[in-house]
Write a protein that binds this DNA or RNA. Structure first.
Lengths: 152, 152
DNA sequence: CAGAGGTACTTGCACAGACAGGTAATCCGC
DNA sequence: GCGGATTACCTGTCTGTGCAAGTACCTCTG
């Protein structure tokens, strides 16, 4: 075929828009969280995911999926946070291969402090993105989404 | 305030959904392009951005914005692609600080070969995402987007 | 035309991530 | 209960990225 599929082009444009918006938000959050609390976006994501957990403990692999990270990256990420005293590891009794992670009080405090920064940055960045013609429709669509949380 | 702002929670959920979908697509594209053509997603993005340019040449900074990369990363990325003979640098005459990059015939060929892989992976990944309840609405919204290309 | 200030790209360095390979624990068929 | 397959996590190594500093060039002012 000589001409490119139209639907493919539409999907590609959508993907570029998605990537652009993601990059914008990600960069803004990264800078804000780093500046205010020495946290990266993934680190915040992990703390946040842990805090949304019922018993506030998760296994490494759950964490890896929640953060969209490889297991090796998860190991080091948890190590970093553990070294800072924000969470603690402990073996789970029933399956001794598994390792639970749990927020420490310090971790919860830091999360409580960081959440407003996160939320404010998210809000202002979305507002800024809504000013960009190419991004505006996606920002609008995002606001319309209902339902539960992805990536848990 | 004790209770968290509702709108903030909605935005945070939207952001998590966006990030999850982005991660899914990004990982899938990365693996497919890497396996088939030894290209990373950013590398493909750059080649693609170049090919969509009128005269098929861009300055480093345009490239940096198109790929959502820092200028240092762009330098190294262009160097990699240049070493592989996929694009070439040349100084622009009117502003000798600036450097134009241009696809070589090899670069165009590789892009032509990689595009079907990219598009097919994107399609199948979006289809897979549409099966996930949390992601489906966003996938649907993405298909509805009109208009030009972001990140150019 | 000299010099200050800004812009475009490159480079040194440090850090986070992926992949492959390793160890410890669990599960399953016999 | 033994041995093989699988699972969960950790570690060595390499690659890619951002930041800060450096170089070359342009522009503007006097």
């Amino acid at each position: 075929m000589g001409i490119r599929d139209d639907a493919a082009e539409v999907r590609a444009r959508g993907w570029r828009t998605l990537a652009a918006l993601h990059g914008l938000i990600d960069t803004a959050l990264e800078k804000a969280l780093q500046a205010e609390h020495r946290l990266s976006v993934v680190e915040y994501t992990v703390l946040e995911a842990l805090s949304r957990q019922d018993g506030w403990h998760m296994r490494m692999q759950q964490l890896a999926r929640a953060a969209a990270l490889s297991s090796s990256a998860t190991t080091r990420l948890v190590t970093r946070l553990e070294d800072r005293g924000l969470l603690s590891r402990y073996l789970c009794a029933d399956d001794r291969r598994g390792i639970y992670t749990e927020l420490t009080p310090e971790g919860r405090d830091l999360l409580t402090a960081a959440r407003p920064v996160h939320d404010a940055t998210l809000e202002s960045t979305l507002a800024r993105a809504a000013e960009v013609p190419e991004l505006a429709p996606l920002v609008g669509a995002l606001a319309e989404l209902k339902g539960g949380t992805a990536g848990a």
